[in-house]
Design a protein around this nucleic acid. Structure first.
Lengths: 214, 214
DNA sequence: CCCATAGAAGCACGATCGTACGTGCTGAAA
DNA sequence: TTTCAGCACGTACGATCGTGCTTCTATGGG
């Protein structure tokens, strides 16, 4: 007898292809809605209505609202990775990556992937004071992002592309601040001009000629 | 006959002293709760429970949730004026005000006036994509704040306290970014060290010796 | 082709949401 | 001291919240 027959009859979860597609569609819409209503304000009913399906059918995919929130954060992370982190990593290591990560973020906002701006900027402030696994996951993503910027800054420092007395931690803090200010101003005033300002600011701060701003 | 007797009998609102005190207490608590639950997530029931009064008694002070939100934003503005803008204005015009506004903001966070960090940083991202008078009021406060920082920057530029090629708009954008990054990091990681970083960053950025960081 | 099973829907629940109405209590003006 | 409006209350409403349970459909491995 093989291993399977020896095991106690554990009801293994075996997802089907159409269910996985539905789940994916749910999470996409969930991330989008969460940028407007927040992760807490996002309701199962509204989400189901936006997808044209039933509350219970949607709910069965996650089992609880918290599980839905966690899966939504993960999906947002995948999208952020593809739209912002990926392009930044594709640039030459160092100074160019610092500029690229800011540009990629501004492009991400400008093409309006989500109606409510950056998912993580909003989620961080919303869930920051609500202890639990959702906050922890968001905090982990934010730390990883700032850490990524810090490695870019450290690389730029190694290559003498910035002043020798610059500090990677402080520089990462500033770049992150520019990104947050870009998101806040863009969302609040619905003005792409705020993104142009951000693109100029990061170049001036790093001593890069501002020719590349489209 | 005087003006009053000539007017049509308009039922003038004549608030009583105890009612005004209650209303003030409500708004204080509302601002505090809104920094955790958001302006939309803030519920009349929770607010009444936190104050030990009835839902209906509280509700009568405002007549609608939107009016409560608007009054809450105004109250938050008064507190922000007293805790951040006031101290910044008290500093010598120019460069010192730029440092002071950041310090005052960090102090404001560190003394934990509200459990959820900066009211306006959270409210801006939450309400930014929700059209209506509440969003407009928040946007107005945020614009006024950035405008204030810009006047500080312009004054510093006039007095040759910063490099001649600095731009007040871009400088205000950066300082605002540092403030937003300070709030986000502090709220998310509950770490006062993030505020120390912010205080150091703003000094380094402006070329001020970092001796004054406590 | 069959059928065990994942997926989706229908329905119902207790709780809580914002809002409305009616009623005593009480502070301040007359 | 009398009087009246502001204040706070209890109660109730329709809607919606997250969450179960039951039932039908349809998919994919044997």
């Amino acid at each position: 007898m093989n291993d399977r027959s020896m095991r106690a009859p554990q009801p293994v979860r075996r997802p089907r292809a159409d269910g996985e597609r539905t789940r994916q569609a749910i999470l996409r819409e969930a991330v989008s809605l969460a940028t407007v209503d927040g992760l807490e304000g996002l309701s199962i009913g509204d989400l189901a209505k936006a997808l044209g399906m039933s509350k219970s059918g949607l709910y069965a995919h996650f089992g609880s609202k918290q599980e839905l929130q966690l899966a939504t954060v993960e999906e947002a992370g995948r999208i952020f990775q593809a739209e912002v982190v990926g392009p930044a990593l594709a640039a030459p290591p160092g100074l160019a990556q610092l500029v690229a990560v800011c540009d990629a973020f501004c492009d991400h906002l400008q093409r309006r992937t989500f109606p409510g701006g950056c998912f993580f900027a909003g989620a961080a402030l919303e869930m920051g004071t609500r202890p639990g696994p959702v906050k922890e996951r968001i905090a982990a993503f934010q730390s990883a992002f700032v850490g990524l910027i810090r490695t870019f800054a450290a690389s730029a420092l190694e290559q003498r592309q910035v002043a020798a007395d610059e500090d990677p931690d402080q520089l990462a803090f500033e770049i992150n601040g520019i990104i947050l200010a870009a998101d806040t101003n863009f969302v609040l005033h619905d003005d792409p001009g705020a993104l142009d300002v951000a693109r100029r600011v990061v170049r001036r701060r790093l001593g890069v000629e501002p020719a590349a701003v489209r």
